[in-house]
């Protein structure tokens, strides 16, 4: 029985630098889904555990606020 998707949020105000996973992609725990960039530092947004990316909610180049949802994810 699949669990309901969880929301992954940006931990910092940033721009979306690169999106590495597409919806439906299986990713392992700690594997990056996308990379944010803020103040010249790349901040990977990683899978909390093994699972599948359900939705990417942002586009490359987009500005995101701290706490903004960037992807949904299912175990």
């Amino acid at each position: 029985m699949a669990e309901s998707p969880i929301t992954i949020r940006a931990e910092i105000g940033a721009s979306v630098w690169k999106i590495l996973a597409t919806p439906g992609a299986a990713v392992g725990e700690e594997e990056p889904i996308l990379i944010l960039e803020s103040m010249k530092m790349e901040i990977p947004v990683v899978a909390p555990h093994d699972g599948v990316v359900v939705e990417i909610l942002v586009a490359e180049g987009q500005q995101v606020e701290e706490g903004q949802a960037v992807a949904t994810f299912r175990r």
């Binding site: 931990e11 910092i12 105000g13 803020s38 103040m39």
Partner: peptide
């Protein structure tokens, strides 16, 4: 502008 308590995460 960064937070050493949060792994030196930038602080815009």
């Amino acid at each position: 502008a960064e937070d050493p308590a949060r792994q030196f995460l930038p602080s815009p």
